[in-house]
């Protein structure tokens, strides 16, 4: 069946709001599926929503530009959302100040190792330059990651997808990894999740414990700044 033959389609097609509606509806559906699956990270709502929408666009042949004309109303809220990350940092300043001597080196090491290991491995596998650059912000919260990818010559949309995949892997694997490494400190567990699996990891961290969640938020926020600076200064000079 060709969707363009439906009589109401002509009207809907000219109204970009339809794509805002489709995006919201797909997300609401994905969220209820996620709850049904008892918040298993494999049913991550972002992953489900993106799969649904990509499938829908591929089947109907609607160009991405048409879709984005409506979906941009969600997209423009990314920037303000990043600004909001300042609040959890400020609210937890006391615990953070006490942990600072361990926090800063761990953040620096985590950010560096995350970026360098991805670059090194991708280079070993023979992936090309634009992909290498797209991998740089893979552990950064997606809105910032897309900005970084754009700035250094990667592919922003691909960066968003790579972030989602990284976040889902992180949310699933963090607990077994920490148990195997015998790390009981919730601050360390949270930080590892936030620095490496950003927002999706932070959601998983809050399910474990509030301390884990707070340190994950901090890890995510500071890693976003650190990676942006690292990518902007070091990589531009180097590659």
């Amino acid at each position: 069946m060709n969707i363009e033959q439906l009589p109401f389609w002509v009207y809907l097609e000219r109204n970009p709001l339809i794509w805002l509606l489709v995006t919201l509806a797909a997300y609401v559906l994905a969220q209820s599926l996620y709850r049904r699956a008892r918040c298993s990270a494999w049913f991550n709502p972002v992953a489900t929503t993106v799969c649904l929408l990509v499938l829908f666009l591929s089947l109907t042949g609607v160009p991405y530009e048409d879709y984005f004309a409506g979906a941009q109303f969600i997209h423009v809220m990314l920037g303000p959302a990043v600004v909001c990350l300042a609040l959890p940092i400020w609210q937890n300043r006391r615990s953070l100040r006490r942990s600072l001597p361990a926090l800063l080196p761990a953040l620096l090491a985590g950010s560096l190792v995350s970026v360098l290991s991805a670059l090194g491995l991708a280079w070993l596998f023979g992936l090309d330059r634009s992909l290498l650059l797209t991998l740089v912000p893979k552990s950064v919260t997606a809105p910032v990651a897309m900005g970084i990818a754009q700035d250094i010559g990667g592919i922003p949309e691909l960066a968003a997808v790579i972030c989602a995949v990284t976040g889902i892997f992180g949310a699933v694997l963090a607990l077994p990894l920490m148990q195997r490494l015998r790390i009981r400190d919730r601050r360390a567990r949270g930080l590892a999740l936030g620095v490496n699996a950003h927002g999706i990891g932070t959601a998983a961290a809050f399910q474990q414990h509030s301390v884990t969640g707070v340190y994950s938020s901090i890890g995510m926020a500071i890693n976003a700044v650190l990676t942006a600076v690292l990518a902007g200064t070091l990589l531009m000079a180097w590659i």
Binding site: Y27, L85, M146, I155, I200
Partner: peptide
Amino acid sequence: FLANLSLLFVPAAVGIVRHLDL
């Protein structure tokens, strides 16, 4: 904003349709 952070990057991630062959 923070509770719905993940919804916000859906429109951009859907842009992957333009790079499926890559």
